[in-house]
């Protein structure tokens, strides 16, 4: 199977996850979209030196992965390209921000100086915090897309009055990813079958191949659009049938909202630590 086919299969596997009969999958899409948004805002708005606050936010992805029966390893594998980028964000902080913020172990002298132990600089703390922010945001997004179809997400976006044109563009991009992928796969297969000894595509063939790919994809995209028009599509896409909000949706939303508020505005780790000191 070609790389492109593998990529298409990966997208298809995400769609399979979205269709599973899990409790989370049946939640109202607006609830899931809003919670993801609020979670990400809560996480990214925490001070970069407040690592302890960040740690407790791991509860949301941990809880959702279990509730939706998602495989954590699988999620990490799927996000293997984006996670390193996210983690690289704060990598230079330890170099530029060397003020010591805390010591692990060692003794405090009478003059207030620390002797021995491991000194942790503010740069290290901020690097870890930034990394966690990125990882949490990616995981929360993964939870959303693994439990909610693109149509449902767009439906929720329309409920939030996101402009129709923007939602439509997102939907059509999603449609045309398959079309572009399938056309690219066909062209690559046809090329490889007639150039069996070559590794990759010869640079002289790139021009015509890309040209063919774009023309064919545009042609197919137009036909798909015609097919949509013939079944009543006139710009006001109705996505999925209107979904009613149930009591469980409201309760789920309110509980997480309260949890996020507590995590964001109090330091749960410090409070818990205070109980034992």
């Amino acid at each position: 199977m070609s790389t492109i086919d593998n990529k298409l299969k990966a997208i298809s596997n995400i769609n399979t996850l979205q269709q599973r009969d899990q409790w989370v999958n049946h939640l109202h899409p607006l609830v899931k979209l809003l919670l993801t948004f609020i979670y990400i805002i809560s996480v990214v708005s925490i001070s970069k030196y407040n690592l302890s606050k960040m740690l407790v936010f791991a509860i949301y992805p941990f809880f959702c992965f279990n509730l939706a029966d998602l495989n954590f390893r699988d999620a990490i594998y799927r996000m293997r390209l984006i996670l390193p980028l996210v983690m690289v964000v704060g990598i230079f902080n330890p170099i530029f921000d060397r003020d010591i913020m805390l010591y692990i172990g060692g003794n405090v002298m009478a003059n207030g100086e620390h002797v021995g132990g491991l000194a942790i600089s503010a740069g290290v703390i901020s690097m870890l915090t930034l990394m966690l922010k990125g990882v949490y945001a990616v995981l929360a997004t993964y939870i959303l897309i693994a439990t909610t179809s693109i149509e449902e997400i767009c439906y929720a976006m329309r409920k939030l009055h996101v402009p129709q044109i923007l939602v439509l563009v997102i939907l059509l991009i999603n449609r045309y990813i398959y079309i572009l992928g399938e056309e690219a796969s066909r062209i690559m297969t046809a090329y490889k079958l007639r150039a069996p000894s070559q590794k990759g595509i010869h640079y002289k063939a790139w021009g015509p191949l890309v040209g063919q790919w774009l023309i064919r994809s545009m042609d197919r995209a137009e036909t798909v659009y015609e097919s949509m028009q013939l079944r009543g599509f006139n710009g006001e896409y109705r996505y999925v049938a209107d979904q009613k909000t149930r009591a469980t949706d409201v309760i789920y939303f309110m509980v997480w909202l309260a949890v996020f508020a507590v995590f964001r505005f109090t330091n749960v780790v410090e409070l818990l630590g205070g109980l034992f000191v």
């Binding site: 149509e151 449609r175 798909v224």
Partner: peptide, 11 residues
Amino acid sequence: DNQLFMTTVGE
């Protein structure tokens, strides 16, 4: 392939 553009057959 031009006719079917949603995720599942039912949709």
